[in-house]
């Protein structure tokens, strides 16, 4: 029991801070750069990403274990995962709209934007590569997505402040955001001492 808790803690620090999904693995860069102008939209996006990635890694792990491994067709994982994820996001959207309208109000706008974000597929594949069981896959998905949320909210906070700065003309827009992300990546490198 204690071992499991310890492993989970290591997984939490490892996948949310040390090997942060955006800042050190470069997955999910598009929403990271695209939806980080304001803190509240960034938080909404982060919430939607946590929701989708957690469900997607659970479903992918179940399908991998009970269908792909069982029938010995693991080489089809890329095709199966991408289709399952794309269908799943559509399904989640319809489900939320019908049954949990409050949550849909908060996250719905962002759901179509993550349909096939590379982070979702990337995490499903990483879980398989690392031989995680179903429980650990879900935990890893959740923690990685939390890492995404931390990164995008911090970036949005910095970008809100940056509005008032005088930036050289060529660096306005994306370049300065990329430099900010680079500095954040340096800061996140510091977390590697935690493990």
């Amino acid at each position: 029991m204690l071992d499991v808790v310890k492993d989970l803690l290591i997984l939490l620090v490892g996948s949310s801070l040390v090997s942060n999904v955006v800042l050190s693995q470069f997955l999910g860069l598009c929403p990271f750069l695209g939806v980080s102008k304001k803190v509240d939209t960034a938080a909404g996006m982060g919430g939607a990403v946590i929701f989708v990635i957690t469900i997607a890694s659970a479903v992918a792990a179940v399908i991998y274990k009970f269908i792909l491994v069982r029938f010995d067709i693991t080489y089809l994982q890329t095709i199966v995962f991408i289709l399952v994820i794309a269908a799943l996001v559509q399904f989640v959207e319809m489900f939320l709209k019908k049954f949990v309208p409050a949550l849909y109000q908060a996250l719905g706008v962002y759901l179509p934007l993550i349909t096939t974000n590379c982070a979702v597929l990337g995490i499903a594949l990483t879980n398989v590569q690392k031989n995680y069981g179903i429980g650990f896959s879900i935990a890893s998905g959740l923690f990685t997505a939390v890492g995404f949320m931390i990164a995008i909210v911090i970036l949005a906070g910095i970008r809100e402040k940056m509005e008032y700065n005088d930036i050289p003309e060529s660096f306005q827009g994306m370049p300065i955001v990329l430099i900010t992300a680079g500095l954040m990546a340096i800061a996140f490198c510091g977390f590697s001492g935690l493990l």
């Binding site: 050190s24 470069f26 003309e169 660096f171 827009g173 994306m174 370049p175 990329l178 680079g182 490198c189």
Partner: peptide
């Protein structure tokens, strides 16, 4: 390392701008 990627891309995009 990871940060370098962001810096190189930033320089590249600035040039493109």
């Amino acid at each position: 390392l990871a940060p370098g990627a962001f810096f190189v891309l930033a320089a590249l995009t600035a040039l493109q701008n």
